[in-house]
Nucleic acid binder design. Sequence first.
DNA 1: GTCTATAGGAAGATAGAC
DNA 2: GTCTATCTTCCTATAGAC
Lengths: 223, 223
Amino acid sequence: MVKKSVQEAAERAVRLPAEQRRGLILQAATAVFAERGYAGATTDQVARAAGISQPYVVRMFGTKENLFLEALERALGKLTGKFRSVMADYDAGRLAGQVAGLDPAVGPGRPEQLVPLLGAAYADLIRDRGLLLILMQSFLAGHEPVIGARAREGFLGLYQLLRDEVGLDTDGARDFLAHGMLMNTLISLRLPEMYGQDATANELLECTLRSKLQVVVAASKGD
Amino acid sequence: MVKKSVQEAAERAVRLPAEQRRGLILQAATAVFAERGYAGATTDQVARAAGISQPYVVRMFGTKENLFLEALERALGKLTGKFRSVMADYDAGRLAGQVAGLDPAVGPGRPEQLVPLLGAAYADLIRDRGLLLILMQSFLAGHEPVIGARAREGFLGLYQLLRDEVGLDTDGARDFLAHGMLMNTLISLRLPEMYGQDATANELLECTLRSKLQVVVAASKGD
DNA sequence: GTCTATAGGAAGATAGAC
DNA sequence: GTCTATCTTCCTATAGAC
């Protein structure tokens, strides 16, 4: 029966190695949770986004809570990974072209030079749809016993990274986090999608995102 | 039957004028939505918090969405109201005791003097449990068609207030919002409740909340 | 490795009594 | 002005086939 096999090809997901499938589901979950929050997202929405059936999502991750946790873990890992790789590049002198005066001995020190680099790296992460936003959603889920606890740890971990590895002082780390939270808020509010349509929104976006505006606007519009 | 009347007194809400009841429900809704988000909160939780039945909540506000909208409206109104009253007090010279050099002609200008005052006023709003957090929850609900739209408007309105009424420049308004978003995030994460238990959390809280720490910690612990 | 069917349990909203 | 009862829809999770 040709008809049946066509139907199957359309409705049935191709068999994939479990690890690869997990990755795809986590990616889909990140996007869905980022948009709708932990409570607002359904495992069925994740399943559709990943192109598989709802029970299979649950089967692979046990519970919705655990799925969120794993997506959160992945996001935290990618963020800290990116930050550390920027620092490694900087310390190895591989960013010579992008930084004005590269000698921390004179002029601005390493932390001060790293801040704009890390800020740009942060904004760049929005390409991975939902990565920053699922973090933000976890921060707003402080009342959830398991997820909230992990979110607290993760947030404090970021602060420690800024302080101990980047070398920022207390106020510097705070300011970096503050601007990160503002960026997340603007993205969550979907202001980048209004770019060009509202003068106030434009002003705020330009001033907040500076060099990374194009990236963020493009990513938000589903590029 | 004494037993029955006691039971009724315990289970049945006292009759209240509709307007007063609306206010109580909105207050309860603010707290519940602030904690669990729009999607995560249930009308039943709001009803319990307000001491009435779930259908009555729906009866009074039509839909859960509309209940959230009205609570959001109230929060936006209280916030802008508080900011404007601080400005009025400042301009009328009623804050002489609280500001160092009060003459905008010499030293720091009006906007620069207002910033810490508004910051303290902002932190003070946490006394009204959930007021700041329901705003934050609305910002994270950008995908909701109605609520998201109002949240965008509200956020841009705050930016305009800072720019046009307070008189901050673009960067000043951005920084103020950024630190507000950080404060909201810390509160949502329940870090104030950890105060005294974690060195890193303490450092971040002290540096972010400065003079208002006691207020925030007390309010978070349910005072 | 992936699906269909479905149990079991909320949650929002309505109807109608008091 | 406020409640109880309930309809309906939706969602997580399980069972079991292919």
